[in-house]
Amino acid sequence: MTTLARDPGRDLRLTPARRKLNRILCNWQLYLFLLPAIAYFLLFRYYPMLGVQIAFKKFKAVPGIWGSPWVGFRNFEHFFKTPDFKRLITNTLAVSVETLLISFPVPILLALLLNQLPSKRYKKLVQTTIYAPHFISTVVLVGIIFLFTSPRSGIINHLIAALGGTRIHFTAEPAWFRPLYIGSDIWQNAGWGSIIYLAALSGINPELHEAAIMDGANKYQRVWHIDLPGILPTVVVMFILSAGKVMSVGFEKAFLMQTSLNISASEIIATYVYKRGLQQSQFDFSTAVGLFESVVNLVMITTVNFISKRITNSSLF
């Protein structure tokens, strides 16, 4: 039986596109696993993007998306000129930026502290305790906030009164909206967010810590010179992803915490789009506002990624 000798220069003579196709055909089983994910994104992420054109039209239900008259940037101009524009941008940026600056470092600190715990049993107990709030629904969380901060029956106001202070109607005062929003976000998501940093810490070579201990380094020095540099690429990527959502403040929580008394601080772009789009049926205008929000997020994530790549050599793309 004779076999054909493989020509070692054959792959080099192929075009780049042909070589790429050959690699795909050789590993077709792996690409088959990607089909469900690709189908999901095509059907539920990319195909609905055809509806973005509503932002540039005066939408009418009978002729539909394609038959509605084209108005260009009129919806965007209307949004920029509305009296609510400045307040919406200010509230949205205030909530998102403060949440990013205050909430983002907490999971990192938790992961560093948990990584230093010597007792595995106690470490598992602490992890379970701080992970649990993540599984509480937003509706239940907001209910807890209203219950604990109630001016009459809330435990927080009972403590304030017991200490000689004056009871505070937290959910009715605009100044307390952001502290309650950010504080509850830390309590609910900080423990869960620390998982990815714990995974990054587990990938650090233990020999680095052993060598540092032999050189006389204490725990704080090892955290500063070994743990933090080891998880820096992960921190950078997570920060880029968070910066890309700077305009996308969670609608559900903000809407549920919103009252007629704190609306001056709690009205953000997400709640505004819901009210104008669904409650008032201004689909074209609300789509324009949502598209503006997405464009700002795209610019932010691209800018932060570019800066990070120049400074730390770590980037998302």
Rank of each mutant, 00 (worst) to 15 (best):
W224T: 04
P63H: 01
L14Q: 15
G72V: 00
L50A: 04
I213F: 14
P174L: 01
V299E: 04
I102A: 10
P174G: 00
V95Y: 11
V126Y: 09
S153M: 14
A217E: 07
V295W: 10
A217M: 04
Y197I: 05
T2G: 14
V296T: 05
I156A: 06
T138G: 05
Y46A: 02
I144Y: 07
M300N: 05
L241Y: 01
I108R: 04
M257T: 03
T92A: 10
E267L: 08
M49Q: 08
S137F: 00
A61I: 13
A162K: 13
I311Y: 10
P63S: 05
F170Q: 07
I89N: 08
L261D: 11
R310I: 12
S150D: 09
K20C: 12
I136K: 06
K57S: 07
D215N: 01
K58T: 05
Y181W: 08
K81I: 13
L34A: 14
G277C: 06
E207N: 09
Y220H: 10
Q127S: 11
I65H: 00
P179G: 06
L101K: 02
N157H: 07
S150Y: 03
H158V: 07
I108F: 03
R6H: 06
I301S: 13
G164K: 11
R121P: 09
L163Q: 01
P83D: 01
A217R: 03
Y131A: 07
A265T: 06
Y46M: 03
F306I: 04
L198G: 05
D185S: 15
G67Q: 04
F135H: 03
L232C: 05
K309H: 14
Q280D: 12
Y122Q: 13
A211T: 13
L32N: 09
K58E: 10
E252T: 00
F170E: 04
M1S: 15
R6F: 01
F306H: 03
S153A: 09
A288M: 03
V273P: 04
I204V: 12
V236E: 03
P229H: 03
L30Q: 15
S150I: 04
K60V: 12
I311N: 09
P63I: 01
E293V: 06
F283T: 13
L141G: 13
L228V: 08
K275M: 15
G277P: 02
N297G: 04
F79L: 02
T128A: 15
S194R: 00
Y274M: 05
L35W: 11
T129P: 04
V246L: 13
N27V: 02
H78G: 14
A39I: 08
I182T: 08
I108G: 06
T99S: 11
I269A: 11
L25P: 15
V223E: 12
R152C: 15
Y220V: 12
A217V: 09
L50Y: 10
V304P: 00
V126T: 10
